[in-house]
Write a protein that binds this DNA or RNA. Structure first.
Lengths: 371, 371
DNA sequence: AAGTCAATTGTGACCGGTCTCATAAACGTC
DNA sequence: GACGTTTATGAGACCGGTCACAATTGACTT
């Protein structure tokens, strides 16, 4: 089928790579020394008002832009961040990256990006080292084991901040880090299901490397607090495919009437598995996801889930990074966001139960009337 | 609720920013001149085998890593790419970014990233200029108007390549570019629906700025070839929300029995709209998406869609960029991927039609028996 | 044996910023 | 009015690579 060929694009133009205007050009035009120009662009206090204005005028007249490479080389202030993550296309990662990007853009930082996929543990230190620009800073998205390892490998030379899964109480991360406290939200989601009358709640976790995740811990806590036994767990995964397979194993067990999923992809896979097994959602089994991906409210039935604001988390992480760095200019502090239960259509009372129990105990959750 | 506070991370360590080993350190240790070391790391042909090996040995013994900033400053070969895109979290973009990243990693390029969101048209040239590192190259994801504008603004000084929507026949893009030829796939998808017996096929497009998109054109061509009138079009959107709203307008029209959507998010929104309007998919109306996002096969009913391999497209784009750049080392050529119809569960014959027409004419499509 | 040429290696300037330190001017203070 | 102190400015080295060019070496001509 020859309809599928691509015409070549035009050839690359000359790409003359001509020189932009430098600090010395500005100095000459303004009648000052190059050092004075340097002082102006770095907001050094010891420049007279008149000189500063003159230089600033010349800078904008000539369209001068400081050369980031030269600045890094000369030992100037940190001007760029490299983001390390295992994956670009998973929603939480992508949104977090975008948050960091927006934050860097606001204060004129450069942003680099590097993927962790396929790097052997023993190569990780070198890979991390090599990923970050000289005199640059580092942000690690450490939601998963590979990210956590990369974070471990970050040399103390490099200013580093990370987005992590919430550490167990008492554990203080070695690096500056931010996280969304999902424990309370996971607990709340579990209690919500229990409040609907479910005898127990199963969990399909995302992978963990501390033996637990806040989502898992919140679920666990709610169950224990209700005096219920904690169902066995699988190893954890990220994808809809994994969720599908994990849930398929659960479909045969009629005592499974409520499943809290580690993320929305897993939830969608689980819904599929239930559907194929002839178990209706939410009539036979309730499902709750995690993240609130943009399409969560459009799937049928619309997914009840725990909303997380990863973009804001990314911004908070960048702000945290800046705290430990001698960056020029003001640091915008930003608190990490909180997780929030959004009730939609995949949750309801368990089957074979005509006499309704009391209304759900959880109260803070948000019901979706919007749209 | 005080359960939701985040403990501060530990303070940033000293971050001594100590000096790594330089080219002159290596030279001294190996008993050669710094220039010879430079030749070795750049694979210059005029170095004797013995010297090269000695230097290489010293390099790995000392753990030397060339300083990217210094190299860029000194006018060395292009070593880094900046990717410009409107969005990180939309699937096609995220996957394309990941493809570029993997390709850059393979040959040791740095990769930067910049978002286009919220940049006014008049600021675009400056923003593009500022985004790319000095002596760096540029990749623009120009699937949408903002991206296309950014591509227009790329100065010819900067080596540039782009991922674009396929240009209309005869139009040759001004910059080196790659694209997935979706025309044939869109036409095939439309013909497939027609072959199932639908009287016409409606289309919910993604935004276009050339007045058309290949997806739209393929749909158009199939309709015209079948001698059918072409239904009116809406302006186009990207999100499930837009798809939901656009499709809601269609639900009242009983002649709408098949909808080709510009992407999977739109399709999911459209499915929701149909569901709420009481129109069953695929019994009352058939729906086809575009992209094959990872969860497409897990939604209920599983989405028939046109698969696109954006990661490979990203790699192809990087390869294309390298063609026009004096990069050291070999260029891995890579052909842009093709689009492919994946038939799942959202398509079927139109309602009120007992006597089946002949089997679908489209033959190349792939039916999903996998899993 | 002297001359030519290519292959290999070394020398020093340079990229565009920053740093350190020296100098000049303005400002009290006694 | 001489002196110390602060403030404003300039001169030059330097970061770690590259580039252009010169110098050395050895093989090959003639």
């Amino acid at each position: 089928m020859t309809g599928l060929i691509n015409v070549e694009g035009s050839e690359n133009a000359a790409c003359d790579r001509s020189q932009a205007v430098s600090i010395r050009d500005v100095a000459r035009a303004a009648g000052v020394s190059h050092q004075t120009v340097s002082r102006v662009i770095n907001d050094s206090p010891n420049v007279s008002e008149g000189t500063r204005e003159a230089v600033l005028a010349t800078i904008s007249a000539l369209g001068f832009r400081p050369n980031r490479a030269a600045r890094a080389l000369a030992g100037g202030p940190v001007q760029s961040v490299t983001v390390l993550a295992t994956n670009t296309s998973r929603y939480g990662y992508a949104a977090a990256i975008q948050g960091v990007e927006e934050a860097t853009q606001e204060i004129g930082f450069g942003m680099g990006f590097r993927t962790l996929e396929g790097i052997a543990s023993e190569d990780m230190p070198a890979a991390v080292e090599y990923a970050v620009e000289p005199a640059g800073a580092l942000i690690v998205i450490a939601f998963d084991p590979a990210g956590a390892l990369a974070l471990e490998c970050a040399p103390s030379r490099i200013p580093t901040a990370a987005m992590i899964q919430a550490p167990p109480p008492g554990v203080v991360p070695r690096q500056p880090a931010v996280w969304i406290d999902e424990f309370a939200a996971a607990k709340q989601a579990t209690e919500y299901l229990l409040g609907l009358g479910h005898r127990t709640v199963h969990h399909l976790p995302i992978p963990s490397w501390w033996g637990t995740t806040p989502r898992l811990a919140g679920w666990n806590a709610a169950l224990q607090q209700a005096g219920l036994p904690v169902p066995a767990l699988l190893a954890g995964g990220w994808t809809a495919e994994w969720g599908y397979e994990a849930a398929s194993a659960l479909t045969r067990d009629r005592s499974v009437t409520a499943v809290l999923c580690g993320n929305d992809d897993i939830a969608i896979g689980a819904m599929r598995a239930m559907h194929e097994a002839g178990r209706a959602v939410p009539d036979d089994v309730s499902i709750i996801g995690f993240d609130d991906v943009p399409h969560a409210r459009f799937v049928c039935p619309a997914l009840t889930t725990v909303r997380q604001d990863f973009a804001t988390l990314g911004k908070a992480c960048f702000a945290k990074l800046l705290e430990g760095v001698s960056a020029r200019g003001k640091v915008i502090k930003r608190a990490p966001p909180q997780a929030e239960l959004i009730v939609r259509e995949t949750t309801g009372p368990p089957p074979h139960q005509t006499g309704h129990r009391a209304a759900p105990t959880a109260r803070a959750h948000r019901s979706e009337i919007d749209r």
